Amino acid sequence: MQAVICPECGREVDSDDLYEISGRKMCDDCAMERQNRPQPCDVWAVRIATNTRRSLGMQGTEGLTEKQKAIYDFIKSRRGATLEELMQQFNLKENEIRKEIAILRHCELARAHKRGNEIVYVPWDFEEVIGRSDR
């Protein structure tokens, strides 16, 4: 067996331990992560999360992890944040921040919003005022 570098995470693995997912070769950890990525617009996940939170009497950020609360508070305080801003602020990789955003989306706490030519993540109840910059 020959050792190779996983192009996704940079970890050294045996060449026999690479998997091909959507035309890209990666180690087993990266392949598992790619296959199990939460989808932000999953109707059933939203229904389950909102019904569960409602039945437990949870409101706002109750029931979230400290990291999820911090991400939500950052998004709210800035009236929107790009993926890059979130990655930099929380020192997380893209896939890690996307997982946290998906959970916030399922709880109807945050959502994506197009501002000009970029996508920003905003609080669920955010409304953009036309003709005024919110940042």
Rank of each mutant, 00 (worst) to 15 (best):
M1H: 02
Q2N: 11
A3V: 12
R11Y: 11
V13F: 02
D14P: 00
G23I: 12
R24M: 05
R24P: 05
M26P: 00
D29N: 12
M32Y: 09
R37C: 05
R37G: 11
Q39P: 00
C41T: 08
C41F: 04
A45C: 12
R47L: 00
R47P: 04
A49P: 00
A49T: 10
T50I: 04
R53Y: 00
R53S: 05
R53W: 00
R53I: 00
L56P: 02
M58E: 05
T61D: 03
T61S: 07
G63Y: 01
G63E: 07
E66M: 09
E66R: 03
Y72F: 15
D73A: 15
L83E: 11
E84T: 15
L86C: 14
Q88T: 10
Q88G: 01
F90N: 10
K93Q: 14
K93E: 15
K93P: 00
E100H: 15
A102E: 13
I103S: 08
L104Y: 04
R105C: 06
R105T: 11
R111L: 10
R111D: 06
K114M: 12
R115Y: 08
E118Y: 08
V122E: 03
P123R: 01
W124G: 02
E127G: 05
V129N: 10
V129R: 12
V129T: 15
S133E: 05
D134S: 07
R135D: 02
R135V: 01
